[in-house]
Amino acid sequence: MSYKILYYVNQFFGQVGGEEQAGIAPFYKEEKIGPAMGFEQLLKGEAQVVGTIVCGDNYFNENTEESLKFIYDTIAAVKPDMVVAGPAFNAGRYGMACAGVANAVIDKLGIPVVTGMYHENPGVDQCKAKAIIAEVTDSAAGMRTALPVMAKIALKLLKKEELGTPKEEGYIAQGKRLTVFADKRGSERAVEMLIARFKGEEFETELPMPVFDKVAPAAAIKDLSKAKIALVTSGGIVPIGNPDRIQSASAQKWGKYNVSDISELTGGYYTIHGGYDPVYANEVPDRVAPLDMLKKFEKEGLIGEVYEYFYTTTGTGTSVGNAIQFGKEIGKELKEAGVDGVILTST
């Protein structure tokens, strides 16, 4: 069986014209246009390009919805196994269009997409996590070297063969850190890395340092005595019995519990956190999430009120991806509830 590929290019590579044609609406032809022709030759008969969509870069970026609808309709008619877009080299609007096509096709239809971009193309960050982007030069002069890389990747994906590392295959890393078996144990690799450093030889770190987000602090609360304060913790404090089955490490969810009728967590709560000595937190869970003090302050009028729900999850081993999601979800609820400030405790 030969796999079917739908190709996507812009007005320039679609041979319609240059910048003056960037506003043209998408059209489809059952032909191999521009790079699609050279691309198909590289597939050695194992897959074929069934047709090409041509769309102006400006049109796509200004009328994304209409453009995507055209693409969805074409896909519904053509039923391709894969969509290939570009290569866009360092053309920003073309890159953004390829990324837009890639994300939409992958998210909505689950069809794999291969494209090609220069690593600085703004389209890279838009779609690298979903599409496979061949790393190509910054100008169309690199077409001859770009297409074989894209074709090889496309065939591997179509045949469901495992893709090698970005370096081996020539694509831009998607950012997935996958656990694999090494030839040597870790300690031996460490000793060899150190000796390479002594000898001034090249070495490659297995873990490039992460880059952290910086969050600007919110403005100060002007009058605490009128403020609604919520209590949130990553210390794994949950009602005894852990009704929502929050994990003791690497949390996949968070919980919220009504604390409007209690004056402290002690008695009804404990910790399921797997990252610290739980004995003292189990004795007095308020040591980790100080509801007792907040309620006292509420009584004394120091703060306006304690928000009725207490939010909790486990911090240990929890991926930053999950933490960002929890933060957004909890933050949204607190914002909607008119909460002015949060006491956020970790362990």
Binding site: T165, A173, K176, V180, D183, G186, P208
Partner: peptide
């Protein structure tokens, strides 16, 4: 983490 086993991570 004393490197007793032979797992590693590769960026894909």
């Amino acid at each position: 983490e004393i490197g007793y086993h032979n797992l590693t991570v590769k960026l894909y």
